[in-house]
Design a binder for these strands. Structure first.
Length: 278
DNA sequence: CTGTGGTCCTGTATGC
DNA sequence: TGCATACAGGACCACA
């Protein structure tokens, strides 16, 4: 479940289940999701066994489960990764990749169809893994400097949607919420960031924060069984989307049919009336 | 510095 | 029914 609200839904689901629990054993069913562990799958499994989890943390779309020894299990869900909580003997999900047997009969499973995501052990990463250090703070981070962010965006001559998707500028926003924020703020995806007044950039960021907060309240956005919480349940925010995936459906503000265009090798949805091209 | 295009994977939907 | 193609919410890298 890729974007910030979906990752936060997972983090919240993991928190009561893993915090304070020890790993009794690990099975790597497919080597690819642990490819970042240079010493290999067997060493990955052995290295995790016996450690105890702290409170799961998140920045943008990156998730990490700190251990009480200062290291962390770093996770990225990529396009199709899931964490699931099951009883140890429960039927395996079709794309179950890594199984972690925790104390008290809890089995934490990493399930991933496409395997763009993965797990790795981050030495010393409990506070902030080195692998996440280059990722900018997200819009829910209490230490985010909004004025500095607005200023940085204003200095960029890239298309505004490209900037929103750049995780080293502001993290957590993906293709869906970028389109939703741009629709709410009435900005076209290809508008040069430097052409937007600071107040417009601030309004766009607030739109992004608001739409992600609403999505989080509804358990995230799910279109199919690939995007579910730790119990396998879907969120409901797809019913509330205003732009993403609504090709030819009327704009909820002005009635003009929503159009789809290719941008950055992916789909962008917008209202040609509310969001005129620059 | 910016932007483009390709890559990692598996699956579903659609059209012929 | 088979087969080919397009597309999918992300991150990263080489290259121009």
């Amino acid at each position: 479940m890729p974007e910030l609200p979906e990752v936060e839904v997972v983090r919240r689901g993991l928190e009561p289940a893993v915090t304070g629990r020890r790993i009794d054993g690990v099975q790597v069913l497919h080597p690819r999701p642990v490819r970042r562990h240079a010493a290999g799958p067997d060493d990955f499994a052995a290295s995790l066994t016996g450690r105890t989890f702290g409170v799961p943390r998140r920045r943008g779309k990156f998730l990490w489960l700190p251990f009480d020894d200062g290291d962390a299990l770093l996770a990225h869900l990529g396009m199709s990764g899931q964490f699931r909580l099951d009883a140890p003997g429960a039927p395996l999900q079709r794309h179950a990749r890594v199984l972690l047997d925790l104390a008290d009969g809890v089995q934490l499973r990493f399930v991933d169809q496409r395997m763009f995501g993965g797990l790795s052990l981050s030495p010393g990463g409990a506070e902030l893994p080195d692998e996440v250090a280059h990722i900018a703070r997200d819009l829910f981070d209490p230490e985010l400097d909004r004025d500095a962010l607005v200023a940085r965006i204003g200095r960029s001559h890239s298309a505004i949607k490209r900037v929103l998707l750049n995780q080293t500028v502001v993290s957590g926003i993906g293709n869906i919420y970028a389109d939703e924020a741009l629709w709410r703020a009435r900005v076209h995806s290809e508008t040069p960031a430097s052409a937007l007044p600071p107040a417009a950039v601030a309004a766009l960021l607030e739109a992004a924060r608001a739409v992600m907060a609403e999505a989080l309240d509804q358990g995230g956005t799910s279109f199919d069984a690939l995007y579910v919480n730790v119990n396998g349940e879907s969120g409901y925010f797809d019913r509330t989307l205003d732009a993403y995936g609504r090709t030819d459906q009327p704009c909820r503000r002005c009635g003009t049919p929503i159009t789809r265009q290719s941008f950055m090798n992916r789909s962008s949805f917008s209202c040609p009336t509310c969001q005129p091209a620059p």
